[in-house]
Amino acid sequence: MKSGRDTVWELAFNKQPLFEKLKFFLMQHSLKKMMAKSKKDLNCIDILDVGCGYHGNMLRALSKSARSVTGLDFNIDEELFSRDRINSIVGDAEKVLCNVPEQSFDVVYMLSVLEHVNDPVKLLKEVRRVLRPTGVFFVNSPSWFGKFILERVVLPYFDGSGSYKIQVDTHKRYFSNSSLWQVLIDSGFVSSEVKIAKANFFCSVSACITKRNDAA
């Protein structure tokens, strides 16, 4: 039976723009594929969502099966704090992730975040540090084709409130397969750990990295 809080969240989710819902379901699909390939038992893992968003949509979905989920973002719905198995870290990832103990998580994911940060390599080094050996890191960021779609399709036709324009205007970079690979290597990940592919109808570049068991 669904709780009252779940019903309230579903009502709030249903009011979100169609594009936001589509993005959520595409990201959820990508994460499920990644988890299936990693062969990890969700019931036994601790997950970190860097840039979870105010509503923590993905946190809510994953909390039903993971041992624990932790969301990190500037501003997070306080209602999330009271939920079982959901933890929150409020702040700028570039400033607060360094305070998290090393090897704290089995899975870390970062969805549509890397394009906003000032120093991707510095942040990814911290991600690698908090990831346990054999842990999985999933990162997704807009491609140059995604930039075209955002500016020529999403903003003119799906952004009546102007909220997406505010986000797009804070983008500091876009990625190709090779440029994302390079920042991951510069962050300390090893080439054989990194699997990169286009995603979301070529609008994004995704990488799935399994940290080697002998990695420091």
Rank of each mutant, 00 (worst) to 15 (best):
E193Y: 13
G135V: 04
G162H: 08
Y54L: 09
I86M: 09
S161L: 11
H116R: 12
P120F: 02
L180M: 14
K172H: 12
Q103M: 13
D214N: 06
G188Y: 07
A36P: 09
S38R: 04
N99K: 07
L31E: 10
D49H: 07
S30H: 04
N140V: 05
G71E: 11
F145L: 15
F145C: 05
A93Y: 05
V117Q: 02
V69E: 01
N213K: 11
K37D: 11
G53N: 01
V139C: 10
L18Q: 03
I89C: 10
L48F: 05
K39M: 12
T7R: 07
S68G: 11
Q16P: 09
R152L: 08
V205R: 00
I89Y: 03
V139F: 02
T70D: 07
E10S: 13
I45D: 00
K198F: 01
A61H: 03
K32I: 06
L111A: 06
E94H: 10
N200I: 02
S163T: 14
A93W: 04
F145Q: 00
N177K: 15
D46R: 15
L11S: 14
N118W: 06
V50N: 12
K33R: 10
R132C: 15
K125L: 05
N99M: 06
Q16E: 13
L18I: 11
Q167F: 06
K40E: 08
L131P: 07
